[in-house]
Design a binder for these strands. Structure first.
Length: 792
RNA sequence: GGGCAGGUGGCGAAACUGGCAGACGCGAUAGGCUUAGGACCUAUUGCCGCAAGGCAUUGUGGGUUCAAAUCCCACCCUGCCCACCA
């Protein structure tokens, strides 16, 4: 650890040079196997970017830490039968050693680990503030439950509907849980995407995840029900005349039954069956839409109730249907079989009427026969006064006529924070019979995770902490009466949603971070990480940042100015996995080839944002390259060849631009091209420029050769080379001569030749004359310094 | 089913804003160097041809253009994410 040369020492209070540059990479969650090559890939890519910024004169802050709390670590501890805390200690050591080996310019003094009480104290503090501000609340929610392991599982631990450890069928269990009201921020999270420079695909993923849809709430009055009316949400009020039944979710039916609805006998049984079926989470194995939706039989039952369509007073039946979701909209829909595929299947099955009200054939009179729902736009038919109106217009017209409320719905759900697990920050809440839920007073934070022997899941609905009486029993902060602590811990995503605020101020004992430090260093200038976090992690960080902004802690409301997702590394064309046995262990490669070769090879595989295919054979190229570099630097100095200067200036330009655009693979090709030029002869000036260009990629080699040239200060503090645009252009150009678009000849000439000159010269070329056979060209296209195309 | 990314030599991949397809690297072949092997150096590496030269070619089929890997339309395939969201 100490061996690492500290070349990066940002001044955290007043950044030097051109100012601060916060270069962040997603911190890893340490697993037992050690740092994954995918992490290395991400970190090296991010470090190259940061190192160039440093050489450009920015004060670069590049911190690293460990996302050590959470299920991954806990499961490993369970597996090997060691306490998570002990495991964390050893894995931390390993991880930092490995991170040290890859040669990144980390700010080693500002590390943080999420399981450190000095850190999670503030994670808990955030929870308390959330509660105080009304952003944390409790409600019932379903969790995955393994009946054999007797524990709650995270979604990612459920494989094909089975527990990943014991392969028992997982069921859904309803428990009361803590939530954060992220939905309150849905609109801002959506709109503010426009003001940040992020990979476009990630923005789109977030947009879809938030899933805004605008529609109308339409009220149908009911006959024969215990309720007077029912409200449905629809994005297509224009199809209202085509509604031939109402479908309600089993959950809604259940609540009606519970509140005294006298339903036909088999309705209760049907509802029971549906709810039971929903306890089994959908498996990964079920392929495709066919199983998940289309092929999965939609079932339902008539309730005996009728609803009155408010637009035409038509009486339509009310059904309970298993395809209606409880958690979205109002839990009830108006079914329009002609214009919704699911309703169409359902209507076919139960012989319900299918009534076309949107015709795609306007102005022709005939509407098509439907063998599937028509979900597109068209003109209204069979819709009374609205006939012939375009459907888009009719949406507003029909909703308007009914005075229906315009309503915006989001797919985004509130953030479930509770985990019935051990290895996380205890949720800092106390329950008192008299005073209900009370937050732990801030001066009592952190609520330390008790160092229990038995951290195994308990077999009840509770976290293992529930069995620790000394932990559970406490006093109510309000009335001082006997009370009990919340025993669940919080989601790991909460730990990682704010860590970058803490990095510039890890020693702070009084607050999560000082406003001064935050003002100096935040927001993050460049964030690099995996696309798999496109929604959850990146959405939570944005949410929390907006919350901090609203609390007045910071004056910005987006955490990362720029975010780029790196691609996925695969091995020999296949995804790496333990079962395939094709996992690249970075340590082996670093040991064998050294960090510089490994770094460069990773970056040379393919475009950083697209990932690459790791093949052992390919490493030789980079090994040879660095050996050639040493040979050139060991050789005598002499002048460069004639075209050397152009290649040098072009290389500086290309490599600079490529690093800025994360095109590291082509930057390395250019280094290779430049090296070939240097091999034919080079002086000290060219050597230094080359080393500077090499430094971000191969920091150790570059440093060593730099010192051999007699430099006393680190190359990583040297200035990034500049180029002269004029010198990137060569004095001559090769002109391609085409006839009818086919290349027929080429010649070299001075750059800047006029169209006239080029034309005259081309027409005199013997080969061209021969091809033309005296014919008159119809047209001659001239691209200066580049190409002449003769059209015959 | 939806969203996103992608499909180019034996392989990993390049190609700015439409202008020489295959940069750079791996592998392969031949030669040099070497006692030998490795390393290294040189040349070749889409097809035909001794060569000059010719021909083909960027998943498939159409189109636009003097000119298309690049733009447009339809389709096929692969990967990732989401998935009964009314």
């Amino acid at each position: 650890m100490e061996k690492h040369p500290k070349i990066y020492e940002p001044d955290l209070d007043s950044p030097r040079g051109k100012g601060k540059f916060y270069n962040l990479m997603m911190f890893p969650y340490p697993s037992a196997e050690g740092l994954h090559v995918g992490n290395m890939y991400a970190f090296v890519g991010a470090d190259i970017y940061g190192r160039k910024k440093r050489m450009e004169g920015y004060d670069v802050f590049e911190p690293i830490g460990l996302d050590g709390f959470g299920i991954h670590s806990e499961n490993y501890a369970l597996k090997i039968g060691k306490h998570p805390k002990k495991v964390a200690e050893t894995t931390a050591k390993n991880f930092y050693n490995q991170l040290n080996l890859i040669g990144n310019g980390f700010a080693w003094d500002e590390r943080l680990e999420t399981y450190d009480p000095d850190y999670y104290k503030w994670t808990q503090w955030i929870f308390v503030q959330m509660f105080k501000k009304g952003l944390a609340y409790r409600k019932k929610a379903k969790v995955n439950w393994c009946p054999k392991c007797l524990t709650v599982l995270a979604d990612e631990q459920v494989l094909a509907g089975e527990c990943e450890r014991c392969a028992s069928k997982v069921i859904k269990k309803e428990l009361e849980q803590w939530f954060f009201r992220i939905t309150e921020y849905a609109e801002r999270l959506l709109n503010d995407l426009e003001k940040i420079d992020w990979s476009e695909n990630v923005k789109i993923a977030q947009k879809n995840w938030i899933g805004r849809s605008e529609g109308a709430e339409i009220v149908f009055s009911l006959e024969g029900a215990s309720q007077p009316s029912i409200t449905v949400f629809t994005t297509r009020p224009d199809t209202l005349f085509g509604a031939t039944y109402i479908a309600i979710s089993p959950e809604l039916a259940k609540s009606w039954l519970d509140s005294g609805w006298q339903a036909p006998a088999d309705v209760g049984a049907f509802v029971g069956r549906c709810l039971k079926a929903r306890e089994v989470p959908r498996s990964d194995e079920e392929p495709s839409f066919a199983e998940a939706t289309a092929g999965k039989e939609k079932t339902g039952i008539f309730t005996g109730i009728y609803a009155v369509n408010p637009v035409n007073q038509e009486k339509i039946p009310v059904w309970v249907a298993d395809y209606v979701l409880a958690g979205y909209g109002t839990g009830a829909i108006m079914a329009v079989p002609a214009h919704d595929q699911r309703d169409f299947w359902f209507a076919k099955k139960y012989n319900l009427p299918i009534k076309i009200v949107i015709c795609p054939n306007y102005p022709e009179k005939t509407c098509p026969m439907l063998d599937a729902a028509y979900e597109g736009e068209g003109h209204l038919v069979g819709s009374g006064e609205f006939d012939r109106m375009p459907s888009a217009e009719a949406r507003r017209a029909i909703a308007g006529k009914l005075g229906a409320a315009i309503k915006v719905n989001y797919h985004l759900r509130d953030w479930l924070i509770s985990r019935q697990r051990y290895w996380g920050p205890p949720i800092p809440m106390i329950h008192c019979e008299k005073c209900d839920w009370q937050p732990v007073p801030e001066e009592d934070l952190p609520v330390l995770l008790p160092d229990v022997k038995d951290f195994h899941p308990t077999g009840t609905d509770r976290s293992p902490l529930a069995t620790v009486e000394s932990f559970v029993k406490t006093k109510c902060p309000k009335c001082r009466g006997a009370a009990r602590r919340e025993t669940d811990v919080s989601d790991t995503f909460l730990d990682s949603a704010w860590y970058f605020f803490r990095y510039p101020d890890v020693e702070n004992k009084k607050e999560p971070f000082s406003q001064a430090r935050a003002k100096t260093w935040l927001p993050v200038d460049m964030y690099i990480g995996g696309a798999e976090h496109a929604v959850l992690h990146l959405l939570y960080t944005r949410f929390l940042t907006k919350v901090f902004h609203d609390w007045g802690l910071v004056d910005f409301d987006e955490p990362f100015r720029k975010f780029r997702a790196h691609g996925l590394l695969i091995k020999n064309g296949a995804k790496m996995s333990k079962s395939r046995g094709n996992v690249v262990n970075p340590d082996d490669y670093i040991k064998k080839y050294g960090a510089d070769v490994f770094r460069m090879y990773l970056m040379f595989l393919g475009p950083f944002e697209q990932g690459g295919d790791f093949r052992d054979e390919g490493i030789a190229g980079v090994v040879r390259f660095l050996e050639r570099v040493r040979r050139v630097f060991g050789g005598a100095q002499k002048g460069m060849a004639d075209d050397g200067e152009v290649i040098l200036h072009r290389s500086v330009k290309k490599i600079s631009e490529d690093i800025d655009g994360l095109h590291y693979n082509t930057a390395i090709s250019q280094l290779m091209i430049l090296l070939s030029a240097l091999e034919s002869g080079c002086g000290e000036g060219e050597r230094k420029i080359f080393l500077k260009l090499l430094a971000p990629f191969a920091p150790h080699t570059a440093e060593e050769l730099w010192r051999k040239l007699g430099e006393n200060d680190s190359i990583h503090r040297a200035s990034w080379p500049e180029y002269d645009e004029a010198k990137t252009r060569s004095a001559t150009a090769v002109i391609v001569v085409q006839v009818n678009g086919k290349v027929r000849d080429k010649f070299e000439t001075d750059t800047g030749a006029s169209d006239r000159e080029l034309k005259d010269r081309v027409l005199l070329l013997p080969r061209i004359k021969e091809i033309m056979k005296g014919a008159m060209p119809k047209n001659i296209i001239i691209i200066p310094d580049h190409l002449v195309n003769i059209v015959l």
